[in-house]
């Protein structure tokens, strides 16, 4: 009964597709897409982007689904994403009404949290202990304040000791 088998498999496909759409709808709602029609449109776009995978496995795994959602949301918010940072689509959606400059920031900077770093090491400073040198004893710049201190102490002694 090939015709009947085709009917049941197409019915099963429809059910799987409906379940997938429901799951996607829940995910998009959690991602911050509040409008029902927008969710419906985005879910169809996700399924469309996954059309190559659908006939083989019946249902793609959630990792592929989430990546597709990110791609669609990136397109929706017109942001250019790197392959390893697809999740920016969800961020752009999470931000809601994002002012333009932030979108520009999302576009260009690879590391979104901070500007591009450029490692310029700070050289560790020497803090070795100072040791007196013989030459130091002959330094007049050391002796002048010392002489001043000695004279002050002598004056104090004259005033207080008697």
């Amino acid at each position: 009964m090939p015709a009947k088998q085709t009917d049941s498999s197409s019915g099963g496909d429809e059910m799987a597709r409906a379940r997938l759409l429901t799951g996607l709808d829940r995910y998009l709602q959690a991602a911050g897409v509040n409008g029902e029609s927008a969710r419906h449109r985005l879910a169809r776009a996700v399924l469309h982007s996954l059309r190559d995978q659908l006939p083989q496995s019946g249902k793609p795994d959630w990792q592929a689904l989430i990546a597709a959602v990110d791609t669609v949301l990136s397109g929706e918010h017109q942001i250019d994403v790197q392959p390893d940072l697809l999740c920016r689509g969800r961020i752009a959606q999470g931000y809601g009404t994002v002012p333009q400059p932030l979108k520009a920031q999302l576009d260009r900077t690879a590391n979104w949290g901070s500007p591009l770093p450029s490692r310029r090491p700070m050289p560790a400073q020497a803090l070795s202990t100072w040791r007196p040198r013989l030459a130091w004893l002959g330094s007049p710049s050391i002796w002048r304040p010392a002489q001043g201190v000695m004279i002050s102490l002598c004056c104090l002694a004259v005033v207080f000791v008697p």
Binding site: A30, G32, V69, I91
Partner: peptide, 16 residues
Amino acid sequence: IADPFVNALHLTLLKG
């Protein structure tokens, strides 16, 4: 883990 925004935010700030 579960919230799409919080998860995405965390992932974008992680260094590979």
